[in-house]
Amino acid sequence: MAEASGEKVHSINPDLFGLANGSYRLNYVYLMDGTHGFLIEPSLYMNSSGSEEYTSYGATVGYRWHWDGAQDSGFLGVNIGYASGTGISTQGGEDFDLTVTQFSMVPKIGWRWAWDFGLNITFRFGIGYGDYGASTESDDPLAQEGVEALDSLLNLLPVALDGELSLGWNF
């Protein structure tokens, strides 16, 4: 078991699986005394397919407790996040847009395998509360009806998921 005082305090973990589908997300964790971890995690996603274009961004902050008092440890904690995603579809020269926002508060459990030279592998998973909002700038009444229906549907199940599988560096 590593001594708390000798533990590296900084780490950066890019989400490698996200990279594979055009999503850019990385987190920085400041680990105090090997035990108390403070996380910040920005994300960005851009993609276009056919007549649709998507842009999403978000940020998550979180706290976690490393129960072995080291980088190399399991952990428990909570993340709070906000994300906004917009999709635009062009149909017959007219643009239809939809924006979905999400506020989330998710308890999490995870494991970090860390080696002394700096490498870490981190896995986390959580399920918690999610508050969604759907909106459009379109004047089309049918599009607006569709967005209202989506808004109700998304709020039927106020659930948000959180996850990470990443390769990172401690320093």
Binding site: G50, V100, A143
Partner: peptide, 30 residues
């Protein structure tokens, strides 16, 4: 139709990986 379009956009926003998979499904296997 417009209502359906909004649902398609919502799926694209909420499941970005799937939208990408659709886009690339015709890529030839190695």
């Amino acid at each position: 139709m417009r209502r359906l379009l909004m649902t398609v956009l919502a799926l694209g926003i909420l499941t970005p990986g799937l939208a990408f998979a659709d886009h690339h499904e015709e890529a030839p296997a190695a």
